[in-house]
Every structure is written in structure tokens, then in C-alpha cells.
């Protein structure tokens, strides 16, 4: 039963960028799974390895310098990392689609938006150009743009509209998995609300699964079923939305929540995480967060923390929990 619901299983994924004189450990031993129709939120700061993880799922790691050192990415039981270029081009856009952060640069300025949507349809479906263009128009309507505008060029659209076009391209072939990499970061708040609303509705309508990459915990709270928090290439905590937001366990997750202004108490002072993200070419042997962690024990920096199971689907990598009775300051929220 459980097997049938599984869409994606990422297991021990490790990706390095091997440069001439140094190696960037971009993704370190990342494992997670995603069920059909669910949304996973991947949170973390710049350089945490979120986008590299997403690119690995599409087998799009730039090589060189990217090297997949270890691990598998199974999409419906098939390891995409073993597929050749030809097989991948059937999977990309058809089974898995990706939306990139910047809608301004992800469209081709010299083709009409209709052509760009039709292109992806023609690659994956046996239709002629005319039919594909008709379907492209229907896709535009789906994302809330009048079909007539299919004849226009990207520069005639605003930022929010361009992102809708990108969504239309991504969804044109009903993918089972949509990877959205910071889809609303470049947009204004009211437009962001429109686009997120659209994505939620489309997800429900087509029953597809989604991986949403973002640094905004507010967007995660509204959109996701499961959450994985990344830091320096690792997933340091994962679980359901409720487990992460109401029963956070990792000191970094706590730090992220504390860094945000509290909307209910505007005078409360922010509690930033001290220091900076470690250099990904010189990661410590143990926990990468230890140098910034208020709970760090003397040996944290030398001992790689194991993933501890906190019940349900809730896992956290933190050595402090080896001590009986340890708890971060953030209190659990009971609903």
C-alpha cells in the first residue's frame, strides 16, 4: 500500500562540485521521500543545497564541476541518475517539471509565449503544431491569462504574468511532480498571493506532487504537507508541517523561527543566529551548525550527528539529544 503511494525516494544523495583546487560539498547524504499528491517544502538559506538537490532529481547537475558521489533518486521505482540523456528528455517536462526563481530570465525573449508552451507539448505528445498551439492557449486560460495573449512576447507581460506562463509550460504535460524553486521570490506580495493560490488550486486539480524550495517559512506554512530543513548540504530536520512548526527539535530550525519578526508582538527583539554559514569547502568533521549553535557540546564539531527519530515521520540530526532530557528553548505548540 505504502509502496504504491510513493512517488519519489531520494536515498543518501551526495553531490560535490569539484573545482580545480577545492571541493564544495553541496549536498551531503540527503534522504527523503515524497508521496503522490503531497507537497514537500525544502527550506534553508543561500548555499544550503536546496537547488542542487532539486537539480539532482532532474539529473541536471552541471557536470563538470558537479559530481554525484553517492545515492539514488528513484522516481516511481526507477533510478533517474542511471538514465541516459535521451530517457531523461522524456522524463523532464513530462513526469517532472521545474519552475525557476526568476521568471524574467526563464522565458525566451524571441518566441511568443504560445510557442514556448507548445514546444513542451510537441516534445511529449504526438500532436502537430496547430493542435499544440491550441492546447497552449487552453493552458494559458488555466493559469488565468486570456488565451489570445498566446501571440504575445514575454516582454509584453508583467513579472507575475511571466511566472504564470512559466507555470503553464511546466504543467502543460500534466507532470506527476513539480519542482518549484523559489517561485514567488521575485514577485510582489499581492502577486505572490495570487500565484501561490493558483499553484495550490492546480495541484489539487491535477493531483500532482510538488517540491517547493523556499527560504520563506510563511509560504511553507501555507502550502506544504511535509517540511525538510537544510543546512550546509544536509537535511538537519524533517517531518510533517505540524511536527516542524509546532514541535521543532533542531537548534537551527529554532534559530530560523527566532530570526523572523513576530507579527503578534511587534516590539519583541529579534534573536538572530550568530555568525555565518560555514564555508562549504571547509566543513567541520561533525555538525556544521555547531559553531553557531547555542547548545553545542564540546564534541559536536567533531562527531557527525546521527539522525534521531522523534516519532511519526519526524527526524532530526542533533547530538545534543544524546543527553537525557535535552530540549531546545522553543516550546512545543499544542493545538
Amino acid at each position: 500500500m505504502d509502496e504504491e503511494k510513493r512517488l519519489l525516494v531520494v536515498d543518501h544523495l551526495t553531490v560535490n562540485y569539484e573545482l580545480e583546487d577545492e571541493t564544495v560539498e553541496a549536498v551531503r547524504d540527503v534522504s527523503f521521500s515524497l508521496d503522490k499528491g503531497k507537497t514537500l517544502g525544502l527550506v534553508g538559506e543561500t548555499g544550503a543545497g536546496k537547488t542542487t538537490t532539486a537539480l539532482a532529481i532532474l539529473n541536471l547537475i552541471p557536470d563538470p564541476p558537479g559530481v554525484i558521489k553517492n545515492g539514488t533518486v528513484e522516481l516511481e521505482g526507477q533510478n533517474v541518475l542511471e538514465k541516459g540523456a535521451k530517457d531523461m528528455s522524456h522524463i523532464r517536462g513530462k513526469d517532472v517539471s521545474m519552475i525557476f526563481q526568476d521568471p524574467m530570465t526563464s522565458l525566451n525573449p524571441v518566441f511568443t509565449v504560445g510557442d514556448q508552451i507548445a514546444e513542451s507539448i510537441m516534445i511529449h505528445e504526438k500532436v502537430d503544431k496547430k493542435e499544440a498551439f491550441e492546447k497552449a492557449k487552453r493552458m494559458l486560460e488555466v493559469v488565468g491569462i486570456p488565451g489570445e495573449r498566446a501571440y504575445e512576447y514575454p516582454h509584453q507581460f508583467s513579472g507575475g504574468m511571466k511566472q504564470r506562463v512559466v507555470i503553464a509550460i511546466a504543467l502543460a504535460c500534466n507532470p506527476q511532480l513539480l519542482i518549484a524553486d523559489e517561485p514567488t521570490t521575485a514577485l510582489d506580495v499581492t502577486i505572490q498571493a495570487q500565484v501561490l493560490d493558483l499553484m495550490r488550486n492546480l495541484k489539487r486539480k491535477y493531483g500532482m506532487a510538488m517540491i517547493l524550495i523556499t527560504h520563506d517559512l510563511g509560504i511553507i506554512a501555507e502550502t506544504c504537507d511535509d517540511v525538510a530543513v537544510m543546512y550546509a548540504g544536509q537535511i538537519i530536520e524533517r517531518g510533517t508541517l505540524e511536527e516542524i512548526f509546532n514541535h521543532a527539535r533542531h537548534p537551527y530550525t529554532e534559530g530560523l523561527f527566532n530570526s523572523l519578526p513576530n507579527i503578534a508582538d511587534r516590539k519583541e527583539r529579534l534573536k538572530p543566529i550568530p555568525g555565518l554559514m560555514p564555508d562549504p569547502t571547509k566543513l567541520p568533521k561533525g555538525c556544521a551548525f555547531a559553531p553557531r549553535c547555542p547548545y553545542a557540546r564540546p564534541d559536536c564539531i567533531d562527531v557527525m550527528p546521527e539522525e534521531i527519530h522523534f516519532g511519526g515521520t519526524h527526524y532530526c540530526r542533533c547530538s545534543a539529544y544524546r543527553e537525557e532530557g535535552f530540549h531546545i528553548e522553543r516550546e512545543d505548540i499544542e493545538v
Binding site: 510582489d188 505572490q192 510563511g218 506554512a221 523572523l260 503578534a264 493545538v335
Partner: peptide
């Protein structure tokens, strides 16, 4: 509408969202 569009990172916080039509 602007205030209702802020995504709040707290699961207890529920609010009616006002979606604006169109763009600036």
C-alpha cells in the same frame, strides 16, 4: 489586501485572504 497577503509562519494563525484581481 496587502496585510492579508503576508504569509505567517505560525500554524495557529488563520486569516481570510483577500486576493486582488490583476496587477498594478
Amino acid at each position: 489586501a496587502l496585510l492579508s497577503a503576508i504569509p505567517v509562519p505560525d500554524l495557529r494563525y488563520k486569516q481570510e485572504r483577500i486576493l486582488l484581481k490583476g496587477e498594478i
